Amino acid sequence: MEELDLILDKEVEIQRKLKIKPIEGSYNSYVVNEKEKWDWSGNIYLACVAAILAIAFFT
Results as ranks from 00 to 15, higher is better:
M1Q: 05
E2W: 07
E2K: 12
E2F: 05
E3A: 15
L4G: 06
D5H: 14
D5W: 08
L6Q: 14
L6N: 08
I7Y: 06
I7P: 00
D9I: 09
D9C: 07
D9L: 03
K10N: 07
K10T: 11
E11V: 04
E11C: 08
V12H: 09
V12L: 04
V12N: 06
E13K: 10
E13G: 06
E13W: 06
I14H: 12
I14R: 13
Q15N: 14
Q15I: 09
Q15M: 14
R16H: 03
K17M: 07
K17W: 08
L18V: 01
L18T: 05
L18Q: 04
K19V: 02
I20A: 03
I20L: 04
K21W: 02
K21R: 12
K21T: 10
P22Y: 11
P22L: 11
E24A: 13
G25N: 05
Y27T: 14
Y27A: 10
N28Q: 15
N28T: 10
N28S: 13
S29L: 12
S29F: 14
S29T: 15
S29M: 15
S29N: 15
S29C: 15
Y30R: 08
V31H: 12
V32G: 01
V32H: 02
V32W: 06
V32R: 06
N33F: 10
N33L: 12
N33Q: 15
N33P: 01
E34T: 15
E34H: 02
E34R: 05
K35G: 01
K35T: 15
E36G: 01
W38V: 14
W38P: 02
D39H: 11
D39P: 00
D39S: 10
W40H: 09
W40M: 09
G42A: 07
N43R: 09
N43H: 07
N43D: 14
I44M: 06
I44Q: 09
I44P: 00
L46F: 14
L46M: 08
A47C: 12
A47K: 01
V49D: 03
V49F: 11
V49E: 01
A50H: 03
A50G: 05
A51V: 05
I52Q: 05
I52R: 02
L53G: 09
I55M: 10
A56E: 08
A56I: 07
F57M: 06
F58D: 02
T59A: 08
T59F: 09
